[in-house]
């Protein structure tokens, strides 16, 4: 399979991960496009012996981090309606759970969210995930664990408290 075909195969994966990271389909599309363009420009740096998925995801993640750090005005703002535009199953209970999961995801620090989403959505091994995120396996394990605990505790919290903490204090 050609390099380009392999890239094409990864587009839906990249897009899903980018959407999950950015929380905004438009920003995610921009991110994926940047990633694809960069991949094509830098294709000479890709070693055929390496895994293209890791290479692309690492590129995407770094672009995402760069965008967050180099453009403060574009920094992610927690949105009360984050994820509302996601399509979910018609089943109400399922919808609520998906909604809660997305909201809880917004509460996580970027690094934890990136780690959890990568492992949960793409299911790479820890070594590959650590390589993508540019951290040690131990760091990845720690981030995953903390992210999962936060999500779990968030889920167990009463709904009223959740809503209360979502309100912003205005002086």
């Amino acid at each position: 399979m050609s390099f380009e075909q392999q890239i094409c195969d990864q587009i839906p994966h990249l897009r899903r991960y980018a959407t999950a990271l950015c929380g905004d389909p438009g920003a995610a599309d921009d991110l994926v496009q940047d990633c694809l363009e960069r991949a094509l420009r830098k294709r000479h740096l890709w070693r055929p012996s390496g895994r293209l998925r890791s290479w692309l995801f690492r590129m995407l993640y770094r672009l995402y981090i760069n965008q967050r750090t180099s453009a403060p005005v574009r920094k992610e703002q927690p949105r009360a309606d984050a994820g509302l535009d996601q399509t979910v199953a018609a089943d109400q209970e399922d919808h609520v759970e998906c909604q809660q999961a997305l909201e809880a995801l917004d509460q996580l620090p970027t690094e934890q969210r990136a780690a959890l989403l990568l492992v949960a959505l793409e299911n790479p091994g820890y070594r590959e995930a650590a390589r993508i995120l540019g951290v040690r396996v131990g760091t990845l394990r720690s981030r995953l664990s903390r992210a999962r605990e936060t999500l779990r505790q968030e889920r167990d919290r009463p709904a009223v408290r959740r809503r209360t903490t979502a309100l912003k204090r205005v002086k």
């Binding site: 839906p12 994966h13 897009r15 899903r16 959407t19 999950a20 389909p25 995610a28 994820g83 996601q86 399509t87 979910v88 199953a89 399922d94 759970e97 998906c98 909604q99 809660q100 999961a101 997305l102 809880a104 995801l105 959890l116 989403l117 949960a120 959505l121 999962r148 999500l151 779990r152 889920r155 167990d156």
Partner: peptide, 17 residues
């Protein structure tokens, strides 16, 4: 609980895929 939470995330984001 971990699995269930991540399954919910999966379902929420799968339409994008």
């Amino acid at each position: 609980a971990y699995w269930r939470r991540e399954a919910a995330l999966w379902r929420a984001l799968d339409p994008v895929f």
